[in-house]
Design a protein around this nucleic acid. Structure first.
Lengths: 336, 336
DNA sequence: GCGCACTACTAATCCGGTTTAGCGACGCCA
DNA sequence: TGGCGTCGCTAAACCGGATTAGTAGTGCGC
């Protein structure tokens, strides 16, 4: 049934050496003296037999499993966050690692169970990912194990973390409007609760960039980050007689609702109103006109986190990954 | 640094028994006679010490790692397919398993490398997932290992497989229109290449359901499954003077393009044109009016695949998972 | 009072690697 | 020619469990 595995013993026998010697060769240790000739025989035997070392056996002895645990709250729930896993995975594979995934669904008990399960399997370290950039309370179970935070930060200890550079992203979004000539009538659409770091930092970046140019937000349209909510909020805003010249939406879904509300009252994008947004989801390129949006570099975030973990950093500053602006058709010069 | 693990030896010592006895108790084997009293002592000692067996060590001996390998082509790329991983994960965790993920990106070499890497880690079986329902050519490396196909089928061997019931879904979509009173002017939007099983089966289901009701498709609007393409195709269709009464879109993205095209010429949904679709992505509920769509049960698919794999089935029929219809506001009675 | 079955354990081995300790052979030097 | 260091390699122990093959102790029948 299951194909029998070739063991180090088989390789050693074929090469006419001891298991020990074969081990030294296959594990590539330099500090033990093996003649080039013997090494060559071992390598050949291994190749001919299709030898692959059992990482279970190796890990038992070395306490290294070449495996990384990825714990997330709800990563897979968010449509595009799969890229976060992809980035981690691709990077891990390139370093001969594999990734064990676990989703805690925000449940602390489940999270601890997952961490234990992973430790039972000897993972070499953890990536602790949050969907929405926020402050994380790390489980005690992780204490003493290598951890890199992904898309979240922790104040208690100087744990290495990788997060998108939301501040710069906010500044960039504002910059797009400024560059198009906008100075007033710019509104921020979307609520900015304090615990959502992304919102707060984007907002700060926007304000700073605007004031640096001698401008400022004309106001804020408060709404949840969903199409229905922003649609209703913007409809009400317009119904009150307000006529914005540009909207900065805190994500693409919010922007979608804005598109719908503006269409209802016949305000053209970008002629009457310019729109910039954050996320750069697929939606952004499906809208008409296509939406200018600042991307969350999910793949890159995952990549960086794995790199950081594998680098052996156990403590360090927060790595901020740039968020690229994708300029499309939703921004134009302000109406004369 | 890393907390020292409690071993079976520690537990045995504390309980005053041999490692063997402790092993019998912790691994729950009934066939060996252990007094209730001794068992109790071992259990207590294990609890007090926080003992957790090393699955590396156990796996080395038993050849069972309690770990499943999930190989996919591009699962994480598709926004909502993360649910597929989630469903597998949640189900696996409930059975004390963890999932090792790997994405082949369609690259056969990479796929083999991933499979090898997983085997090196002693995975007990594989879930081989495809993003789009299709026929899969299984790597030779998998031969002899438990495999369940997810969202794909294989003709060569009778490998267990889990797929969405696309035929029934097609019939259901047509049924929604029939139920609303539609009999003619119904068009299918989206190309149906032969190798895309989902498309072919949906199409057959639609045709069968229509003809069962004495109706039939008025025609087909050929287009790639993307908003821009369907937008252009439907615009051209309408420009040619055609006036459909209902559109069956092969996915939500296609439907999105239809919405845009219909809006351009002032045809209201659902008053002038009814629309049903497949996928039930978030987009469906964001559109105005909300889109009636047949859902792909990603989570359930993942769940079933893991269940099937853990059930020990090495061969079996294709499991077809129902695709639930989510009725919303995009379907109405045909215009008088 | 002996053989036998049964209970309740345990010593020893195994899984497949890594790692430590050490062993012959050889060359060099005094 | 004996001591010593180095080279090239291996025996044995180890990692932490599971499993096989017993082994004491007890009760029972005859």
């Amino acid at each position: 049934m299951t194909p029998a595995r070739v063991t180090l013993q088989d390789v050693a026998a074929r090469a006419g050496v001891s298991r020990t010697t074969a081990s030294f060769v296959t594990s590539g240790r330099q500090d033990m003296r093996i003649s080039a000739e013997a090494a060559e025989r071992v390598i050949r035997a291994a190749r001919e037999l299709g030898y692959r070392p059992s990482l279970l056996a190796r890990g038992l002895r070395t306490n290294l499993s070449q495996t990384i645990g990825l714990i997330s709250d709800v990563v897979a729930t968010e449509p595009y966050a799969g890229d976060l896993i992809r980035g981690s995975m691709a990077t891990a594979v390139r370093a001969e690692r594999l990734i064990l995934v676990g989703e805690s669904e925000g449940d602390h008990k489940l999270e601890e169970q997952l961490i234990h399960s992973m430790l039972d399997r000897g993972v070499d370290g953890f990536i602790y990912a949050a969907m929405h950039t926020r402050e994380a309370r790390l489980s005690q179970v992780l204490r003493g194990h290598p951890v890199v935070l992904l898309n979240c930060v922790s104040k208690v200890r100087g744990i290495p973390a990788v997060v998108p550079d939301e501040y710069a992203a906010g500044a960039a979004a504002a910059g797009v409007l400024l560059h198009a000539g906008h100075r007033d009538g710019i509104y921020l659409v979307g609520e900015t609760p304090a615990h959502v770091i992304a919102a707060a930092e984007r907002s700060t970046g926007i304000n700073d960039a605007l004031s640096m140019a001698g401008a400022q937000l004309a106001g804020r349209i408060d709404t949840l980050w969903w199409p229905h909510d922003s649609y209703a909020a913007v409809r009400a805003f317009l119904a009150a007689g307000q006529r914005p010249k540009a909207l900065i939406c805190l994500n693409d879904r919010v922007a979608f609702g804005c598109y719908q509300a503006l269409a209802d009252v016949g305000l053209a994008i970008p002629d009457a109103v310019s729109i910039v947004s954050f996320d750069d989801s697929d939606l952004a390129s499906w809208l008409r006109p296509q939406l200018t949006s600042v991307a969350i570099p999910h793949f890159e975030l995952g990549r960086r986190a794995v790199d950081l973990l594998l680098s052996g950093a156990r403590t360090g500053p927060v790595v901020r990954v740039p968020m690229p602006v994708h300029e499309r058709g939703s921004v134009g010069p302000p109406q004369a």
